[in-house]
Design a protein around this nucleic acid. Sequence first.
DNA 1: CTGAAAGCGCTTACAG
DNA 2: CTGAAAGCGCTTACAG
Lengths: 338, 338
Amino acid sequence: MSIVTIKDVAAKAGVSPKTVSRVINGEAYVRPEVRELVQKVVAELDYRPNAFARSLSSSRSYLLGLFIDDPVSGYATDVQHGALIGCRQRSYHLVVEPVDLTAPDWESQVRGSIAALRLDGAIVAPPICDEAALMAVFAESGLPTVLVAPSSAPPASGTVRMDDRRAAQEMTEYLLGLGHRRIGFVQGPISHSASARREEGFRKAMAAAGVTVDEDCIVRGDFSSRTGMELGERLLALPERPTAIFASNDDMALGVLITAMKHGISVPERLSVCGFDDAPSSRAAWPQVTTVRQPKAEMAAAAVDILVNPQFRQKAGDEHAHLMLPHELILRGSTGPA
Amino acid sequence: MSIVTIKDVAAKAGVSPKTVSRVINGEAYVRPEVRELVQKVVAELDYRPNAFARSLSSSRSYLLGLFIDDPVSGYATDVQHGALIGCRQRSYHLVVEPVDLTAPDWESQVRGSIAALRLDGAIVAPPICDEAALMAVFAESGLPTVLVAPSSAPPASGTVRMDDRRAAQEMTEYLLGLGHRRIGFVQGPISHSASARREEGFRKAMAAAGVTVDEDCIVRGDFSSRTGMELGERLLALPERPTAIFASNDDMALGVLITAMKHGISVPERLSVCGFDDAPSSRAAWPQVTTVRQPKAEMAAAAVDILVNPQFRQKAGDEHAHLMLPHELILRGSTGPA
DNA sequence: CTGAAAGCGCTTACAG
DNA sequence: CTGAAAGCGCTTACAG
């Protein structure tokens, strides 16, 4: 497969390389008939502009970096998928860069990716988007950066999030509406800022309903199904057993569900269980778990839009884009009347 | 952050850019003291070679493409993780390219990635590594390509696989050793070539043990927990119920497990269940599911090695690398004596 | 509306 | 062991 360059196209179309460049990049000021001719030749020759040459001369790489803590998690997978879709639509490519903040050379790694690849933008996923040291590296580099579900609104180019607090509140209101009063809550890990927001929502709804939260009913997990099982044991062994358990994510909800099964406590008849995420585990279970759909892929796609959109790029630096995407309560079989 | 170029380093070190280039690329023929000096300046200036300039002049991109059907699956995630680790070790970067063979323009998309990014190599995951039309595109492009777990050994630069057949055989032997004779088998989808290999292994072990396979006990799923549940219903409703069910992957095994629970059939006392993959779902369940550990990340990392290793690269074209990586039976609580 | 010149930051091929 | 020259394939800045 001989490689077709812009010169080949120019020669065959009888124009200058610059004109081909104009057509390729959709610039104005090309006579319609010339444009059409060039487009025809491009198609005939199946010409693909060399991304490196383009990047070198334009100092744009058409490359976005996705910086992520644990690329193996289900969360990461969904975020990446959304980012990939967004990139493809806009002819960008995505480079996934795992960031291990416990590695001694993490900073050099990150700097290296930014500098060597001349990234056009970065998307940073939770929980590392809440790490000050990492964010400082991005800030210093001047790279447009969008944070996914960060705790606050740090000085990044943009943020994309959902309302974790409100969603947890709605879920709690739903449980209260079902008649539950004694509700167990499994907190997520402190390292994820969403954990605190979800707990706030839970407490807010309980307070609004005038229900006192028994602190014995609040336990902290690490988002794994294993801690869900362990903490489920603890909650179900309480002298006065909760009639519902709200776990801060689906994996932990699944753990609670399994524990209930082990003890022969039928769900939802004797215990309601709900989670957060709409992860595959919430659907793999039986009964399927009531949860909150988190628009992970949509958030990532929106992050790409923010980074790539020329309007945004122009004003980057002086203006920031902050998006809040809608969530959805997914009611399934694991919850029922108290 | 002003950008440091090779000229800056050369000027500061008092040598030519070419000498800096030699040091950066670890070439021979540089006086030790000059090498050290240059390295010192590189470190001082935190110089990062521009990957695009390097690619443009050397016609190597230091970029590997991972072509994958469904980037959201757990399989994809593990493969990608292994590839990422491999790339990082060798200062390569990974570009993930989803391939949707049902999209009308898939071929153009794939060609575009190869041509525009000037990839140095491609890793193709199952099941698309078994698609002749796709493999033809790679073959035509001349791009070094390594296939992960393909059905046969097509004319690619290399393949990396595990012995699905042997693993399924060992699992079946384990069940037979436990005293099971009537064993249900949930096949995987035909689109995945591993499905057939796993079934072969199952049948081979059964035949070797002189046990006749009742074809009513063989049912086909699609690797989802939902079909696992449905087919579990079917197998457990059989006039003569199997004492063990071997599902071709963990998600389906989980579905079978859930169905057994629904019907109050205790596992492993009255039914043994096992899967394949060592997926998160096998550990999230209770009891945890006996399964086969598939070295997914290791296979991907090996694929990177094959593509990047200079020795291999030299002889690419006339010689192929075919690796078989070891699997492992993971015995857990879901299986027991008949 | 179009093109000739120069340059992006490296490496290749060559000379010494 | 080291460097000067040329070029990779585009785009920028400029001229017309």
